[in-house]
Nucleic acid binder design. Structure first.
Length: 198
DNA sequence: TATGAGATCAACT
DNA sequence: GTTGATCTCATAC
């Protein structure tokens, strides 16, 4: 229960360190959320990243300091939540793709108009809808209300794989997930434990 | 189980 | 005008 609340410093490191460490952490938005089950890393040198071609109005938050939320519209319909990482200007972020719903189930069900728990937050668009994340959250700090992120208490087994729904740099294994979780947006093919200390 | 259409917006060519 | 870090629903196998 007394898990440490993550501050902005946690995100001021390589996305490839932060992303696997977020698996198993608890994300709350206005008291609603759960355990992070799946993320993807996007680095500014990565052709699939929004920041690859430079700063635009949409991605400007990615070019700011780490520890802030980058929220964008996907396919004109969905909202997707990212955590900005690394140093200011490096424009790297972690996309939150799935969580295991734990807190505020009733609210999530109402927002999603759905009762099946497994589909509440298994996918970036679904997760944003269930947590009530939208354009207003773009640029908000992750260590202040309505966001709360708690470190995991022990390192879970982490699966890695290729990212989903992209065409550029599609071979990079920068997707991380809770091995065997039923809340993943898609199962992982390969199970590659990542060595980390808590 | 798998594939396809539609929804709908901002960046980019 | 086309393309996406997507999801849902419908129809087909």
């Amino acid at each position: 229960m007394p898990a440490a609340k993550l501050d902005r410093g946690f995100f001021a490191r390589s996305v490839h360190e932060v992303a696997p460490e977020l698996i198993g952490a608890t994300l709350l938005v206005d008291e609603v959320g759960g355990r992070i089950a799946e993320v993807e890393a996007y680095h500014h040198t990565d052709p699939a990243a929004h920041s690859f071609r430079g700063r635009t109005q949409r991605n400007s938050v990615m070019f700011g300091p780490p520890g802030f939320a980058y929220v964008y519209r996907s396919y004109g319909i969905h909202w997707c939540l990212n955590f900005v990482c690394e140093a200011e200007g490096s424009a790297s972020a972690v996309l939150i793709r799935a969580i295991e719903p734990v807190h505020g189930l009733t609210k999530m069900r109402r927002r999603r108009r759905l009762s099946e728990e497994r589909l509440l937050c298994s996918g970036p668009g679904r997760l944003a809808q269930a947590l009530g994340v939208g354009r207003l959250h773009n640029g908000l700090p992750l260590d202040r209300h309505p966001f709360e992120i708690f470190a995991r208490e022990n390192a879970p087994e982490i699966a890695t794989g290729v990212r989903i729904g992209i065409t550029k740099a599609a071979e990079l294994p920068w997707r991380y997930g809770l091995a065997g979780s039923r809340f993943l947006s898609k199962p992982f093919r390969q199970f590659q434990p990542v060595v980390r200390t808590a």
